[in-house]
Design a protein around this nucleic acid. Structure first.
Length: 716
DNA sequence: AGGATTTCACTCGCGCACCA
DNA sequence: TGGTGCGCGAGTGAAATCCT
């Protein structure tokens, strides 16, 4: 029993001994390394690297550590459960190597993390580098080992005696004598300059007023203020200028330039109306007027620029932006408007800080050649100042095809950001004929696309008819022109109906009025429109004209339909005014009684004339409208050979009384109207002859009278 | 009956003219 | 040059009518 217990105790003892030994062994091995930092650093390094590293690479990477014993490093690499050995080298992984070793991992991890001494690390880093480093650089080097932000680093370093500040956020080791510690006090530095150079308070004020004030003043004004001459002011300013610019002061103010420069790099841009930035500036410049101080620095170094009295930026960077904008415009070449996303501008200028982006936006907005759209993502620009035409141009470029102006208006509203009067868009498009082309009603395109100016549909029809030299059916006309216009078929039809230049031949056939009249006897002109499918028939109306006696004549080709319908159709478009009852005369002055129905424009009863005169199909007949109720009808041959003036007097009872109306009386002042009057009324007053100059046609009055007599005109 | 042709009533595009 | 009012007429959709 005792044995048993003893055995058990022994066994326990054995186990606890074993564990104890195990822990001791592990701790001892750690002790042999004796560099907790090193363990932690290697751990961090491998963890931060995503790829395995060889031993040499690790040593190389940790160059800033004072000394690394290879055997220690090997122990670390091989011992810790989170460090694994792969083909390419050592790497970090969370997967466990073995369970036992985890104990130490947990025990020490916490210890290491807290135990690291940043001051020592930075000390080592600086002495390794052998030169001052900025906080930014230090942070960069320490990055693999420890994450620490700049503010914290500054805090730690400024409280440690090992370091001294030798530039803006730049530290050196205290023991380095060749680097002097910097103390920022702008007022002291300025006063030192004034004292050393014997600049009087008044002279400094004058200098300040002339050179450092943002509001430019003149020597004259300053002179008046101090009761000295303009010339004296100029001398004073020149003198102070020379002194301030002296090289010995240059060094003195350099630190401020670095300071401001550093602030700009950190913030992207200094906003002189932003409290946080002002606080930072005040730490160095104290109560000194900041704009004035920067102006002074600029006076010496010419490195900064103040924009709108509000922003402070590096001069070279500012000009880079300005030059970039010029470059963009330059690159446009022949093109009228360029478009660029703001983001790509930022990228090309390699700008990331939002304040810098805002500055670029501001500069673009100030530049009249540029325009930023309402949403603020797209930047438009042109060679000269950017106006509404440029916006319209860019809209067309975006749409890339002829488009109705209402769509353009929507886009325009989007860019401008305010409602636009559609009428206004139209007038813009209309006023820049060099840029825009109207391709159809309401549809516009860019001229550079090569579109033709919109031709009126009716002009297209006329062009076609002139080219074809024949009468055409309106469906065919439409087929020919539909590619050149956006008009609908019905529209083409309607337009043809109302145009004087086009004659309607009925049944959908149309020809040029001039051609129809000229070719009234030319069957060939019409023959090529005889349709094959019977639905389209040859037209029967050939044209309307006024003959030399002032009467309206209408020419027809006699068709089968005319025989069958007992009527002749007078197109409405001719605007012929007729009474209901018509007296139709032939050239032998036989009278036929007809009826005219205005609504249908039909002349009924014509058939009896056709029969009596043995008129055949295809023959051409001419109606001469004498008055609203008298029409003369001729066969074409008769009209040519047997035409005689209609004797209105003889057929007085048929002729409309309108003939005698006052407004019908022609005042006889020239030969033409004299003859016209005579032919119409059969007589001429002797008195009227006195008014007429006949010298161009007749040698004497006798010759005229003989001529008139021959034409049946007598004196009264 | 249904496609072809004609008519009607309407909208809105655009030229002209004027003003600031 | 930019903005606007007016009125004509180019262009449209659909109904009416024609025609076989």
């Amino acid at each position: 029993m005792i044995n048993d217990i003893k055995l058990k105790e022994d066994k326990n003892k054995l186990i606890s001994n074993k564990l104890q030994n195990f822990i001791c062994e592990a701790v001892n091995s750690l002790m042999t390394i004796n560099q907790l930092e090193l363990e932690y650093i290697v751990y961090k390094l491998l963890k931060s690297k995503k790829v395995p590293m060889t031993k040499l690479e690790i040593i190389d990477r940790l160059y800033f550590l004072k000394e690394i014993k290879i055997e220690n490093l090997e122990l670390i690499l091989n011992y810790y459960n989170f460090i694994h050995m792969g083909k390419a080298g050592y790497y970090y992984s969370e997967e466990e190597k073995s369970i036992e070793n985890n104990i130490f991992n947990i025990i020490y991890k916490i210890k290491y993390i807290e135990g690291i001494d940043i001051c020592t690390l930075v000390c080592n880093l600086l002495s390794k580098m052998g030169k001052p480093l900025s906080v930014h650089e230090i942070e960069f080097y320490l990055d693999t080992i420890i994450k620490i932000d700049e503010e914290e680093l500054i805090e730690i370093m400024s409280n440690c005696n090992d370091f001294k500040l030798v530039g803006y956020n730049t530290y050196a080791l205290s023991k380095w004598d060749k680097y002097k510690e910097i103390i920022y006090d702008f007022n002291i530095d300025i006063n030192r300059v004034k004292k050393h150079s014997n600049i009087t308070r008044r002279n400094w004020e004058i200098f300040k007023m002339y050179e450092l004030n943002t509001e430019k003043t003149t020597y004259q004004k300053i002179g008046q203020q101090y009761s000295i001459t303009r010339e004296r002011v100029r001398q004073i300013v020149g003198k102070v200028k020379r002194k301030v610019r002296h090289h010995i002061y240059k060094k003195q103010f350099e630190k401020y330039i670095y300071f401001v420069d550093g602030l700009i790099i950190k913030n992207g841009l200094l906003c002189l109306d932003y409290e946080k930035h002002i606080i930072q500036l005040k730490e160095v410049f104290g109560d000194h007027d900041i704009v004035e101080a920067i102006n002074l620095l600029n006076f010496i170094y010419d490195k900064l620029i103040i924009i709108d009295n509000k922003y402070c930026y590096q001069k070279d960077k500012y000009y880079r932006i300005v030059n970039y904008l010029d470059y963009l415009v330059e690159k446009l070449g022949e093109s009228f408007v360029g478009i660029k996303e703001l983001n790509s501008i930022y990228d090309e200028l390699r700008v990331q800080k939002w304040r810098e982006k805002e500055l670029i936006k501001l500069l673009i907005n100030k530049d009249s050649r540029f325009h930023i759209d309402k949403v603020g993502n797209t930047c438009y620009f042109t060679k000269e100042s950017f106006d509404r035409y440029c916006i319209l141009y860019s809209i067309f470029n975006k749409i890339d095809e002829p488009v109705h102006y209402s769509i353009v208006m929507e886009e325009y509203t989007d860019i401008i950001g305010e409602d636009t009067n559609p009428r206004l868009i139209l007038s813009y498009l209309d006023r820049r004929k060099d840029l825009f082309v109207r391709t159809f009603t309401g549809t516009y395109a860019l001229r550079e696309w090569g579109y033709d100016e919109h031709v009126f549909t009716i002009d297209l029809v006329i062009e076609l008819l002139e080219e074809k030299q024949c009468v055409m059916h309106y469906s065919d006309i439409y087929e020919f022109i539909k590619d050149k216009t956006q008009s609908k078929k019905q529209t083409v039809y309607t337009l043809m109906q109302f145009d004087d230049r086009i004659a309607s031949l009925g049944c959908g056939y149309y020809g040029l009025t001039s051609q129809v009249e000229k070719n009234s006897a030319n069957l060939k002109y019409y023959s090529n429109i005889v349709a094959e499918d019977n639905k389209r028939r040859l037209g029967y109306l050939l044209g309307k004209s006024i003959n030399k006696y002032g009467n309206t004549t209408i020419t027809y080709r006699v068709t089968e339909i005319m025989f069958n319908s007992y009527c002749i159709k007078i197109p409405k478009v001719f605007n012929i005014e007729l009474n209901k009852d018509i007296h139709l005369f032939d050239c032998r002055y036989n009278r036929y009684y007809c009826k005219f129905y205005e609504t249908e424009n039909n002349l009924y009863g014509i058939n009896s004339f056709f029969k009596q005169n043995e008129i055949e199909e295809g023959e051409i007949i001419i109606l001469e409208i004498i008055s609203t109720n008298v029409i003369r009808i001729f066969k074409k041959e008769e009209y040519k050979k047997k035409y005689k003036t209609f004797d209105s007097k003889k057929y007085e009872k048929y002729v409309d009384i309108l003939v005698d109306r006052d407004d019908e009386i022609i005042e006889i002042v020239d030969l033409e109207s004299l003859i016209k009057f005579g032919l119409k009324y059969g007589f001429v007053h002797y008195e009227d002859l006195k008014k007429v100059d006949i010298s161009s046609k007749y040698d004497d009055l006798f010759e005229l009278m003989a001529d008139l007599d021959e034409r049946g005109v007598r004196f009264k």
